Simulated scan of single mutants.
Amino acid sequence: MEFGDQELTGAEEERLVSGRAETAERDAEAALRPKGLQDFIGQPQVREQLSLVLDAAKARNRAPDHVLLSGPPGLGKTTLAMIIAHEMQTSLRVTSGPAVQHAGDLAAILSSLEEGEVLFIDEIHRMARAAEEMLYVAMEDFRVDVIVGKGPGATAIPLDLPQFTMVGATTRSGLLPAPLRDRFGFTGLLDFYSSDDLLTVLKRSAHMLGIEADLAGLTEISTRSRGTPRVANRLLRRVRDWAQVRGTGIIDEAAALTALKVYEVDELGLDRLDRSVLQVLCKRFAGGPVGLGTIAVSVGEEADTVETVSEPYLVREGLISRTPRGRVATSAAWKHLGMQIPANYEF
């Protein structure tokens, strides 16, 4: 393959094609994001509350109060941050907690903000403590103290900041220190979506992507999307791939069922990792209790991955329980795996 005037090797060509595919995937995801609150599907309480905050700020002609968005991944926290900036007709600065590991990193971001801008920090609970302490003052007094020099000769130079709106997103609000939580004027708690709301999301996404789909096919996808729009849109694109390559190009119920089987997503929305956790609990350890570390080693994953990706959904669906002694399979887990509950098993 030639690129410009250069001949590409096989590995270079593979990286180029892969990079283009990833870019196309990100572009598709970005294109599906609603631009305004009126287009945002689901979360009616948060949408109504946030609408009041923004409308009041517009009436006063000033930046809205700082906003904290809390909830599981994939429910629309980043989208809502973008909507806040769009509704206020201002620009959005985006960073993440893990990227802000020093107070100087945060000072550089804050000092470059312009009047009325929205600063979005994803995974805000993972910020370094020194940066958090600087953020307290910035959010409350709109200033930062820049330390010049070291030791006894160090000098703190106060730097005034323009009025801005801080939007923080977290999947673990309990890890936020109370002083930081208290500085947010509004906290939006996002919950999992119903199948009906996900069906509405999928109809909109299919229309925007030019996908031909019937109600039965989209319904099948919505019921397996774990209550999460991000998962629903991802499954929609994968089922579309199957329909285009091996089907008729139309997402109907048969296409959805076959494609989701190929991608190992069962009728409850469980994937390979979820089922592996259940099988380890029921088959290898007779239902538990089993420690998280033991489960992680048994399924070949990191403990953090099992705890944050798989376990919350399994607990929410009533398939496993957390106990002081470890994780325990419920009767629903045995039933889902098609296994007989041992006669002496105690729940």
Rank of each mutant, 00 (worst) to 15 (best):
F3W: 13
D5A: 12
E7F: 09
E7W: 11
A11K: 10
E13Q: 12
G19P: 06
T23E: 13
R26W: 10
L32D: 03
G36L: 12
G36E: 11
L37V: 02
D39Y: 01
F40P: 06
G42Y: 01
V46S: 13
Q49I: 10
L54H: 02
D55W: 06
A57S: 14
K58W: 11
R60E: 12
R60S: 15
N61T: 13
L68F: 04
L68R: 00
G71P: 09
A81I: 02
M82S: 14
H86F: 05
T90Q: 02
L92K: 01
L92P: 05
R93C: 00
T95K: 06
S96A: 15
P98I: 08
A99V: 09
A99E: 14
V100L: 11
V100C: 04
G104A: 10
A107S: 05
L110T: 04
L110F: 05
L113R: 07
E115G: 08
E117M: 14
D122R: 10
A130G: 03
A131G: 03
E132T: 11
E132S: 03
E132H: 07
E132C: 02
M134R: 08
D141M: 09
F142C: 12
D145E: 15
V146Y: 10
V148C: 07
V148Q: 14
T155L: 15
A156Q: 11
P162G: 00
T165Q: 09
T165W: 06
M166P: 09
G168R: 10
T170H: 05
R172F: 09
S173V: 15
D182I: 05
D182Q: 10
F184V: 07
F186A: 14
L189F: 15
L190N: 06
S194T: 15
D196H: 13
D197I: 12
L202Y: 02
K203T: 04
S205A: 14
S205R: 01
A206H: 05
L209G: 03
I211H: 01
A213K: 02
A213Y: 01
A213T: 09
D214W: 01
D214G: 06
L215W: 11
A216I: 06
L218G: 09
E220L: 14
I221C: 06
R224S: 03
S225C: 01
S225K: 00
S225D: 11
G227I: 07
T228V: 13
R230E: 10
D241W: 07
A243H: 04
Q244V: 11
V245F: 12
R246N: 13
T248F: 01
I250E: 12
I251G: 00
L257S: 11
A259H: 08
K261V: 03
E264S: 14
D266Y: 06
G269L: 00
R272Q: 12
R272M: 14
V280S: 00
V280M: 02
F285N: 05
F285E: 06
A286R: 11
G288E: 02
P289N: 05
V297D: 15
S298P: 09
G300C: 14
G300W: 09
A303K: 12
V309R: 15
E311M: 15
P312E: 07
V315S: 03
I320P: 00
S321H: 13
R325V: 07
G326Q: 00
G326F: 04
R327I: 14
V328L: 14
T330D: 00
T330M: 02
W334L: 00
W334A: 00
L337Y: 02
L337F: 06
M339H: 01
Q340D: 08
